[in-house]
Amino acid sequence: MSNAVETVLARHPGAKRDKLIPILQEVQTAEGYLSEASIVRIGKHLNLPASKIYGVATFYNQFRFQPKGRFHIMICRGTACHVKGSARVLDTLTRMLKVAPGQTTREGLFSLEVVACMGACALSPALAINDEFFPKVSPTKIAKLLDKCRQQDAESAAVAVANA
């Protein structure tokens, strides 16, 4: 089991089921996501079946079950963004990336997350890639954005190879 999970659990000795959500949050902060192994390990610590923890964790949008991609895309589905057409943006993203919200593309490049409001209503519809905000996105802009990310990833990979 990863040390990160053990470190979190060591902070909660003798914890009961009411500590489940804080523990899940801390593990996600430490590891970036909740792995199957982490969930089973947390279950052993709290004496809870994995199905129960999985049920609780899937209830909340904040938990993810796949590691984040190198480009983590957060798309806002708040009221203002919805009025300005964020549903179509999300639809375009899921079609182009072939992943649903909460998932990561197979090569680990992109992950998609839906958030309720980023407080950037003036920029709606808005999305954020690795904490950088992109205002007034539209389905046509999305393709360019994704291409830029891919290009950036290829360049950094080339740099890494050159350095090695």
């Binding site: 079946p49 199905s51 999985y54």
Partner: peptide, 20 residues
């Protein structure tokens, strides 16, 4: 006391499923 299945997800997307 087996708990092989539980509610997964929320609201109109909820379903009964196994862990993972």
């Amino acid at each position: 006391t087996v708990s092989a299945i539980d509610f997964v997800g929320r609201g109109c997307n909820a379903y009964i499923g196994t862990a993972f």
